[in-house]
Simulated assay, not measured.
Amino acid sequence: MVQPRLQIIIGSTRPGRRGHAIASWFHAHALAHAGFAPELVDLAEIGLPLLDEPRPPQQGRYENEHTRRWSEIARAADAYVWVVPEYNHSYNAATKNALDYLAKEWVGKPVAFVGYGGVAAGARAVQALLPVVTSLGMVPAAHAVQMPSIRRSFTDDGTFEAAPGLQESATRVLDELRRLTVALSAAPGAVPLV
């Protein structure tokens, strides 16, 4: 069986963000897990402007090159992990914007989250994203990796060091995503991962 492609999407585009280091940690963990062929996708590098397509994404008739490029990237994945910060009791605008750009590319694919920020550990961001990804036809995992008080998790040079329990949480998420990915690829009408 071919290794399913897992995109670990860095949802924050803010200068000074912590999401890139957290996503890099999760990417390394996914490589060691060996259930996927993981790749990092950085929304800051993709550089999507505020949604500027004249037609609804459900039509799939994209006029802008940045949208076509984003569509190709997202379409290539079999599963997703969004690494999202919690801003003001919810998720950030760049994440919502990137999700809203596309429609058919998301349908029938499993998704999980790594949430971070403050005492809520990104839980409110993840909870707010669940109805969004569900309405886009994605299949959310039951578990998420949640990181409280992340400032203590960084060394002076900016390296992320996972707190106790985070490795196990990441493994649980990857195991569940793998099960979902295999099950969904075997569903009638799905393209198998062979």
Rank of each mutant, 00 (worst) to 15 (best):
Y87Q: 04
L193M: 12
P140A: 05
P56S: 02
M147D: 02
E168P: 10
S12T: 06
N88V: 07
I73L: 14
T67I: 02
P49S: 11
T134D: 06
S90D: 05
R152I: 09
T155A: 08
L31M: 09
L40C: 03
N88M: 06
V2C: 03
G60L: 14
V83G: 05
R68Q: 15
L177P: 14
A94T: 10
W70P: 09
V81G: 07
W106S: 03
L129H: 08
S135E: 13
I46T: 01
A128K: 15
F113G: 09
S185H: 05
E105N: 03
T95A: 14
K104Q: 15
A44M: 02
P56Y: 06
V84W: 03
W82S: 01
V119G: 05
I73P: 09
V84T: 14
R179W: 15
D52S: 10
E168G: 15
A28S: 04
A187P: 13
A183M: 09
H66D: 12
E53H: 12
V119H: 08
A170M: 06
V111I: 15
S24P: 01
A163Y: 08
L180D: 13
R68W: 01
A121R: 07
G60K: 15
H66Y: 11
V41A: 01
M138S: 00
S24V: 03
Q167S: 10
A79K: 11
Q127F: 00
T134S: 13
N88P: 13
E53G: 10
K109Y: 08
V132G: 00
A190Q: 12
A162G: 14
R18Y: 04
G165M: 02
A141S: 15
S24Q: 11
G137Y: 13
R124A: 05
H143D: 14
L174Q: 08
R178S: 14
E105T: 01
Q7S: 14
A190G: 07
M1N: 02
I46D: 04
V139E: 02
N92A: 07
L177E: 10
L6Q: 04
A112Y: 11
A144S: 15
Q146D: 04
L31E: 15
F36K: 12
L166H: 11
W25Y: 00
W70L: 08
N97P: 11
R55Q: 14
H29Q: 13
A141Q: 05
Y116D: 04
P148D: 00
T95N: 06
V194W: 13
W82Y: 04
F26W: 03
Q167G: 09
